[in-house]
């Protein structure tokens, strides 16, 4: 998924790091522009436009004409795109077509919800993924190994939109343990600071709200975590197996260190490097999965927002939102690559 595979070994030299980062950032700009141009033109030549949707069944030619005029949709496309860029340079993402609100304000409202969900999912996938990975590697070819690796394969083969619905069916409908959707129960009041509800609840010491927010997180976060969890588990296993074969592990064992100590202290630490990279790359998977998960669990984050915007042809939201998501995406990939370079001890030895 990322460009880490193409990384040049020379760059690990600390002095070369800064220019490397700068170059990557420079490459980012045409990439982002490319994304926004493609998305912009594709959606604008698509037949349904926001005027049509706003007016619905009762649209008349006159009303459509006036509304399009107002939204600037009668201008040639390159001028519309130019206007968008001009605003962008001023740091302005414009105003949404439907809610007539600053796009930036909407991003600020929705992004924390996605962050909360993704981080929760990432934590779940790391904890379980690494655990099963280590267990599998240390007990290679045992029943446990087979089971967890088959589990991991089932995990990557899972249609998560379906899994979400099935979990909802079991845990909310039949057992009644967990709420079906949304971020907070109806009676719960919460003062928002960051809009990450569980964090806000902690900051304001609101335990009832914290419990409620976490309770609402469980199902969507678990649903979203399945694929990354499986990937992390497999990566941990193969990385651990490779390290366990190394001589120094054998030496450590020979020295009489306990098996557990060797596994955790020596092997795991070294095996962690590719795992960390893998984890970083899961952000992309999470962002994509968030669209489906948020739609199913009515989680008001950017994924659902973007999907609705495509359906409603809210060009302003799509333009601003895609750029924002792509920027996040590319930045995370960059950070992962840099981190990889920084933490990789084998390379610094060379």
């Amino acid at each position: 998924m990322s460009s880490s595979g193409r990384s040049n070994h020379k760059l690990w030299n600390q002095k070369l790091m800064l220019p490397y980062i700068l170059r990557r950032i420079l490459i980012m700009i045409p990439t982002l522009l490319g994304v926004s141009i493609i998305v912009f033109f594709m959606l604008h030549v698509t037949p349904g436009d926001p005027a049509e949707l706003l007016l619905g069944e009762r649209a008349t030619d006159e009303a459509l004409l006036q509304l399009r005029e107002h939204l600037g949709l009668n201008e040639p496309l390159y001028i519309q795109y130019g206007m968008f860029l001009k605003r962008l340079l001023k740091g302005d993402l414009g105003e949404t077509i439907w809610t007539r609100q600053k796009v930036w304000i909407e991003v600020k409202q929705r992004f924390p919800a996605t962050i909360e969900l993704s981080i929760a999912a990432l934590i779940i996938s790391c904890v379980f993924g690494i655990f099963f990975g280590i267990v599998s590697a240390t007990k290679q070819y045992s029943i446990l190994d087979y089971l967890s690796m088959i589990g991991a394969l089932v995990g990557v083969s899972m249609p998560i939109f379906w899994l979400g619905l099935v979990l909802m069916l079991i845990f909310s409908l039949h057992l009644g343990w967990l709420p079906m959707s949304g971020r907070l129960s109806i009676g719960i009041e919460l003062e928002t600071i960051t809009n990450i509800y569980s964090l806000d609840a902690l900051l304001t010491g609101n335990w009832a709200a914290f419990k409620d927010a976490v309770w609402h997180l469980v199902l969507p976060a678990f649903t979203l975590s399945t694929i990354p969890m499986a990937i992390v588990a497999r990566m941990t296993r193969s990385s651990m197996l490779e390290v366990l074969k190394q001589d120094y592990i054998k030496t450590a064992r020979a020295k009489g260190l306990s098996r557990f100590a060797v596994t955790m202290k020596h092997a795991f630490r070294n095996a962690l490097i590719p795992v960390v990279t893998t984890i970083g790359l899961q952000f992309g998977v999470l962002m994509g999965g968030a669209i489906l998960t948020e739609t199913i669990f009515a989680w008001p984050g950017v994924g659902k927002w973007m999907y609705d915007a495509v359906m409603q042809r809210d060009y302003m939201v799509i333009q601003g939102g895609t750029l924002f998501i792509a920027a996040m995406f590319v930045t995370i990939n960059l950070v992962v690559d840099v981190l990889y370079a920084v933490i990789n001890p084998r390379i610094s030895v060379r």
Partner: peptide, 10 residues
């Protein structure tokens, strides 16, 4: 069937 906007327009 199209998405709603396209449906209305077409």
């Amino acid at each position: 069937s199209y998405d709603w906007g396209t449906y209305l327009k077409r």
